[in-house]
């Protein structure tokens, strides 16, 4: 595995030239000092940012262990007192949370697969294959996400009702197998367009057909982008509230996002339980992201014909 990290190697080599000069040692020393100074600054910036980014998670975690009345206190109470571990048990007590987990996994998994598969195929078509109307169709594709959802919600609902899909997972899955949405198609198109065409041309000369070229040459080179699509798609479906809200009726079919919102009522919200449920819904996302990012961000980078 090769990394594409620019700073280190380059600087090192530039300094080799400098080392040959008169005050070699002192220059090297000061360079090292300067480098460790910048390194320290880098870590400080990273750390400061990390604190800001982590506040919500820490708050969420700590709130999920608090008494109902202790969440929005001032001055903030970071360590729960008393600890209410039973918040988590209460969530399971009040609703079939495991069932919601399973439903969410099914919907997310099925929709994600379809979205990644179909978006990568369609995007390749828009990026690399010439056909009449390509530009216009691409604009149509983008145009479909320019209509705000409130005004298409009811017609779409009626459509799914006629298909007999209400209270099933079909409206939450099937459309994503057909194109996967403008955002992802556009994203992958940009990544394909950025590839050097040499490899693909060479394969074509060797007699490979377009689908093989797409599958064997283009797709592997855009692995990081596919990873991004998978992550976004996962989060989109995992946290989707409106889709399940509109299409699912039977409480046993609910997803996690709906379950979490069941704690919000007429006038009062059971914030501690809502937070506990949120933690349980969020942790898998964080773990999955932490594991997955290693694979897709530091994926193999093709460096061209060898």
């Amino acid at each position: 595995m090769r990394r594409t990290i620019l700073s280190e190697a380059g600087e090192g080599r530039a300094l080799e030239g400098a080392a040959a000069q008169k005050y070699a040692r002192s220059t090297e020393w000061s360079a090292r000092l300067r480098r460790s100074f910048w390194r320290a600054v880098q870590y400080l910036v990273l750390l400061a940012g990390a604190v800001v980014m982590l506040v919500p998670l820490v708050w969420l975690l700590s709130s999920s262990f608090k008494d109902q009345g202790h969440i929005f206190l001032f001055p903030p109470q970071w360590i729960p007192n008393p600890w209410r571990l039973d918040n988590y048990l209460k969530v399971f007590d009040q609703m079939p949370f495991l069932r919601y987990y399973w439903n969410t996994i099914v919907v997310t998994g099925a929709a994600l697969l379809g979205q990644v598969a179909s978006a990568s195929v369609v995007a390749y078509g828009f990026a690399r294959i010439r056909f009449p109307g390509r530009g216009a169709l691409f604009m149509v594709l983008l145009a479909t996400i320019m209509i705000p959802y409130p005004v298409t919600l009811i017609p779409t609902f009626i459509l799914f009702r006629y298909l007999g899909w209400l209270d099933t997972f079909a409206p939450l899955i099937v459309p994503y197998w057909l194109g996967g949405g403008a955002f992802f198609i556009f994203l992958l198109r940009q990544f394909y367009l950025r590839l050097s065409p040499e490899l693909e041309d060479a394969a074509r000369i060797d007699g490979a057909n377009t689908f093989t070229i797409f599958l064997r040459i283009a797709l592997p080179q855009t692995k990081p982008a596919l990873g991004v699509v998978a992550v976004f798609s996962f989060l989109g479906h995992w946290n989707d509230f409106l889709g399940p809200l509109i299409y699912l009726n039977t409480p046993d079919n609910y997803t996690l996002a709906l379950g979490i919102n069941l704690f919000r009522g007429f006038h009062t919200t059971q914030w501690n339980l809502l937070m506990a449920a949120s933690v349980m819904a969020t942790l898998p996302c964080i773990l999955l992201f932490a594991v997955a990012q290693r694979y897709f961000i530091q994926g193999i980078v093709f460096t061209g014909v060898k």
């Binding site: 390749y124 294959i129 010439r130 298409t152 017609p155 459509l159 459309p175 057909l178 377009t210």
Partner: peptide
């Protein structure tokens, strides 16, 4: 090549006609 292009974008075209275009036109 053009035919291949249409085949590649076919999933999207089907989705567009089946689920997306109708509601947009309705709106």
């Amino acid at each position: 090549e053009a035919m291949e292009g249409y085949v590649f974008i076919l999933p999207w075209l089907v989705g567009l006609l089946a689920f997306v275009a109708g509601p947009i036109i309705a709106s």
